[in-house]
């Protein structure tokens, strides 16, 4: 097998790597954003968020993937038995723990004055959060979200351990056996991962800085 054939096989894994990362990222937003506001504004139940963050900080993604896919998969064939579901579930919940911390920093950065201003014109707490805080929180979090996205692209390689999804890492390791080549697949896949992580993190950071200047933050 020549280098071009290997390159094509690896490139065909990129869409799956991207979709795992993007779906996980979206799950991370859905989990992380409410958790961040709970942690800042509902101090009595903040400990739940703390515990959640500690658990996902302390257990390797690989162990969670193996536990959910091979452990729970046989009992829940339509959800955890599905490799893509399990991958997005585990990586998404893990990302939610990280994103909660990113948004929490951003909420502090936007500042309490805006909440108070919103409530003083008659908005309820949660409406003030939705209409005033959240749009600004995203602007404030761009650089953190850029690295979180890059982290998810890299984490998607862990999905190899449950098999079943022919993403980039899985294809590279299979080429090691089928093409009996230990050089090209790993060099090319490393470069592809760098290509996937670099531009987005870079542009998000630039865009965030421009936007912050524009709205005077």
């Amino acid at each position: 097998m020549d280098v071009w054939q290997e390159l094509i096989i690896l490139l065909e894994g990129v869409p799956l790597t991207l979709s795992i990362s993007i779906v996980s990222f979206l799950i991370g937003i859905v989990v992380g954003l409410p958790f961040a506001f709970i942690r800042v504004y509902e101090k009595e139940i903040g400990f739940v968020v703390d515990a959640y963050e500690k658990i996902f900080r302390g257990i390797p993604e690989i162990v969670l993937l193996l536990l959910f896919y091979f452990g729970l998969g046989p009992y829940f064939p339509s959800t955890f038995g599905n490799a893509f579901f399990t991958a997005a579930f585990v990586l998404g919940l893990r990302s939610g723990a990280n994103q909660s911390q990113i948004y929490r920093g951003a909420i502090r950065g936007v500042g309490d004055e805006q909440m108070i201003a919103g409530m003083s014109i008659g908005l309820s707490k949660w409406r003030a959060i939705w209409h005033i805080m959240i749009p600004q929180v995203f602007t404030f979090s761009t650089s953190g979200l850029g690295s979180e996205y890059a982290l998810l692209i890299k984490d998607s390689a862990y999905v190899y351990v449950i098999g079943g999804l022919a993403e980039l890492m899985k294809r590279a390791i299979e080429l090691k056996y089928s093409a009996a080549d230990v050089v090209t697949p790993f060099v090319i896949s490393a470069l592809l991962y760098i290509l996937l992580t670099f531009p987005i993190a870079f542009w998000l950071d630039r865009w965030g800085n421009r936007r912050k200047k524009k709205i005077g933050l």
Partner: peptide
């Protein structure tokens, strides 16, 4: 920095253990 932060440690481990000795 871009190489080590831009690619997964998983790939770097395979590069180190298999690719580097082969080259």
């Amino acid at each position: 920095v871009e190489f080590f932060r831009g690619s997964p440690l998983f790939v770097q481990l395979f590069l180190a253990v298999y690719t580097v000795p082969a080259i």
